[in-house]
Design a protein around this nucleic acid. Structure first.
Length: 262
DNA sequence: ATGGTGGGTCACCCA
């Protein structure tokens, strides 16, 4: 079995002890992190290796963004895409020695205003998703898993109130349209929705700004793990560890995972 | 309609 997780850690240095606990508690083979917020020269590579995860690919920068793939299974190749040619660190990918390729994305949040003319961050977000679509059309993925903080909650029950979030960046029709186009372009399998019907709520993120996130439960499903169809038969489970949102000094994102029968 | 909190860095950026 291969267990792959994704977590927007919001500073890998601040939450290194939590990372160690999560790797152990959920017996993860691979974890993909977003928002590591750490330049490569300060990345805690040796600490993570000492946890038993000796194979690590990372790309970071000061203050913002940053992605890594941490594995106890050998990585035979790693590479990255310079999305939107901005030089920011929002993508990294690895090929494991079992033949699986994993892409880790941190899609731009997109700012507050859902208008590409008024808000360059929103335009960047839409362009980023379009570029994901075109890049996977150029080199058709096989035995591939794409994960990350997509910053888009595509379905009605991926947010606490579909009506109230229709104009809120993360759930606007144009974003959902772009993500749907990406999804359909390679018939990507939405792992978590394979096990939870579309009429049931599913969240992976709760704002820091709520005094009691569990009580108000105004969540959104921003984090995703998708598979190429050739892996669908191997998908055995998909989980959202909402309890990771309750740890001391939590990220605003929960850790999510899948298990593949490999 | 508004502001609420948190991380990184050092007066604000970003989420």
């Amino acid at each position: 079995m291969l267990k792959i997780a994704s977590w927007n850690i919001n500073s890998v240095r601040l939450r290194l002890p939590s990372l160690k606990k999560i790797l152990e508690q959920y017996n993860l083979d691979v974890i993909c992190l977003q928002e590591t917020k750490t330049p490569d020269e300060f990345f805690p590579e040796q600490d993570i290796k000492s946890y038993g995860y000796e194979h690590i690919a990372f790309r970071g920068e000061k203050s913002y963004n940053g992605v890594t793939i941490i594995s106890r299974i050998p990585i035979v190749n790693s590479f990255h895409w310079d999305m939107c040619a901005k030089g920011d660190k929002r993508h990294i990918a690895v090929e494991l020695d079992n033949g699986i390729t994993i892409h880790n994305f941190y899609i731009p949040a997109g700012g507050d205003i859902a208008d590409i003319k008024e808000n360059p961050k929103f335009a960047h977000k839409l362009d980023f998703v379009d570029e994901m679509t075109s890049r996977f059309e150029e080199s058709i993925p096989k035995k591939t898993v794409i994960v990350g903080d997509f910053n888009i909650a595509p379905f009605e029950h991926d947010v606490w109130s579909h009506k109230q979030l229709l104009k809120v960046v993360s759930h606007t029709p144009i974003e959902v349209e772009k993500l749907t186009k990406l999804s359909e372009s390679q018939s990507w399998i939405d792992s978590h929705r394979e096990f939870t019907p579309l009429d049931q709520k599913l969240y992976s993120w709760w704002s820091y700004r709520s005094p009691d996130w569990q009580k108000s439960n105004r969540g959104r499903r921003l984090d995703h793990i998708w598979l190429t169809p050739d892996l669908k038969q191997e998908l055995k489970s998909a989980d959202i560890y909402s309890e990771t949102r309750s740890i001391e000094k939590p990220s605003d994102h929960a850790t999510i995972s899948i298990t593949l029968n490999l």
